[in-house]
Every structure is written in C-alpha cells, then in structure tokens.
C-alpha cells in the first residue's frame, strides 16, 4: 500500500510535520508509532480511572478483593462441600480462588472496555488522539484490582501452606495471555457498542455462560481427552489452568488446552485491533 492511500499521513515539509487528512480507504494501518507518541495520555487516563474508580464508595479499594472472595465462598460451599467437586488434591477454596482472580479481572475489564468509547464520548467527539488508548486504559486500570486480589491469593497460599515452585516463573506469561484475551475481546465490544448498545445488555449474559465453560468451579481434567482441544477454544481455559499450574504446582502442565488458547487469544487480539481501527473513523459521527 502506498503512502498516498493511508488515511492520515504524517510527513515533514521544511522541518514541519505535515498531516494529510483523507477519507478512509482500504485496510487501516494500526499506526503503533502514533500510539507511542501519545503514551503520556495513556498514562494519564489510567491514572484518572484509578483515582476515580472508588470515589464515593464506603469500602473503597476493598471491592477488588470482596468480589472474588465472596464468589469463592459460594463456590466452596455449593461445589466444594455439597457437590464434592474434585479439585486435584488442592483445597477447594484456593482451587476456586486461584481461578477467580484472573476471571474477575476479565469480567471487570470487559464491562469497562465495552463501554469505554461511549463513556469517553466528550473527548472522542472533540479531540484527536489514537482511539486505541481508550480500551487499552481499561486493561491497565484493571491490573490494579488484579494486583490486590492477587496479593490475597498469595496470603491464602501461605495460609494453606502451599509453597510456589519454579513454575511460578511462568506466571507472567499466563497473565499476558489473560490481558491479551481481555484486550482482544474488549476492542471488539468497545467498537461495536458505539453503534449497537445491545452489547451492554448482552455482556452480563455472555459472561454468565462463559463462567461455566471455564474451569473455575471444576478442573479441566473433567473434560474428556478428545474434547480438550475444543475446550481450549475458550482462551480463559488456558489462562485459568495456567494460573493454577504456575501457582499451586498442579501435577500436569496444561498442554493442548493452552496451545489452542494462545492461538485463539492472538487471533482475537489482532482481529480486534484491526476491527477497532476500521470502525474508529466513524466513532465521532456515530457515538
């Protein structure tokens, strides 16, 4: 694709930046360099959202822990105690909680990011900046809640006397996989929600179903061998099993599920980036 066909081009003319504004045509490039130029703004958006997130709440940042913790109690009671769900030799509460930490992160990020472009309408219709910054902000902001819930997880490991093995070194990779999944899907939802507010209504339902197809309340080993690859199509299956393996020293490393999950997450992310960029040109007119 030649320079001429790009929607917006920055060149230099006698030492001055020249910006050409054209109608959008063809595949819109991601322009990651532009994104880098605006990293200050990304930082400020993250800072703003963290600062504002728990304003006018009573328990404040504790919400980050309360959410997954209560879910853990409920799961332990009904699935652990009453249904006697197997948990691969790990105490059920920590078995559930180690999955709930990345899961809660995903759910929070999705609910924030799907609404992010719409809730930033005031800036989107008035100022230029790479719009990708908006959903990226929600992914980074969510990490603060994640960090707190994760600290709680470490505390629980101590309580149950579970010492991490060398496998813990792989944890950043699984976190990255979770971030990629959240951002990838968040990009799709954010762009679609600009025009179709149905997304907001669909999301709670979607996450509810998703909860049950993710090995949170049960181990993925319950899924028959030949279905494991298909089970891995849910990228959160890879994330959750990865977290358990890296932290709790489960006997078997997630193999097939993880490989499929990584592939799906990468496709989701790349597709999401291009879809978002493609839709971005109409945000200011449609939102």
């Amino acid at each position: 694709m030649s320079i001429k066909e790009r929607t917006t081009t920055a060149n230099f003319y006698e030492g001055k930046p020249v910006i050409t504004i054209r109608p959008p045509k063809g595949l819109v490039p991601l322009e990651l360099r532009d994104l880098w130029e605006y990293r200050d703004l990304l930082y400020l958006f993250v800072w703003r959202d963290i600062k504002v997130r728990y304003k006018q709440t009573i328990v404040g940042t504790s919400w980050a822990i309360i959410q997954p913790f209560i879910a853990m109690i409920v799961l332990s009671l009904f699935f652990g105690k009453l249904a006697k769900m197997p948990s691969e030799g790990i105490p059920y509460p920590i078995f559930a909680y180690s999955a709930l930490v990345p899961w809660t992160y995903l759910v929070n990020v999705l609910s924030q990011s799907s609404n992010s472009v719409v809730s930033n309408r005031a800036v989107v219709t008035r100022v230029y900046f790479p719009r990708l910054i908006i959903p990226m902000t929600t992914v980074l902001t969510g990490l603060m809640d994640f960090a707190m819930a994760f600290a709680m997880l470490l505390g629980m490991m101590l309580f149950y006397g579970i010492l991490p093995t060398a496998a813990i070194l792989t944890l950043p990779f699984f976190l990255l996989l979770g971030i990629a999944t959240a951002l990838g899907l968040g990009l799709w939802l954010a762009a679609l929600n600009v025009k179709y507010r149905d997304i907001g209504f669909t999301l709670p339902f979607l996450t509810q179903v998703w909860f049950f197809v993710t090995p949170i309340a049960y181990p993925s080993s319950l899924v028959p061998e030949r279905w494991q690859a298909i089970y891995g199509l849910n990228p959160m299956a890879g994330v959750v099993e990865g977290f358990r393996w890296a932290l709790l020293g489960k006997t078997e490393a997630p193999g097939m599920i993880l490989a499929v999950s990584v592939l799906v997450a990468v496709c989701l992310l790349i597709g999401g980036l291009y879809f978002f960029r493609h839709k971005e040109d109409t945000f200011a007119d449609v939102v």
């Binding site: 003319y13 504004i21 109608p23 219709t125 100022v127």
Partner: peptide, 29 residues
C-alpha cells in the same frame, strides 16, 4: 472537526502544516 482529525472527510483532503491544537468546546476532558 475534520481539520482537528476528530471526524473523517468523505471526499477531498486537507493538509495541516505544523502542530495543530483544537478547542472544540471548553471543558473537554
């Protein structure tokens, strides 16, 4: 809005020479 890169044109083009800033309403952000 087109000149400040908020909205895209349908046809034609515009060139901006130098750093541009826009105030399209007070209190933005």
């Amino acid at each position: 809005k087109i000149l400040s890169r908020v909205s895209k044109p349908t046809e034609g083009y515009a060139e901006i020479y130098g750093k541009a800033g826009s105030m399209l309403e007070v209190g933005t952000g």
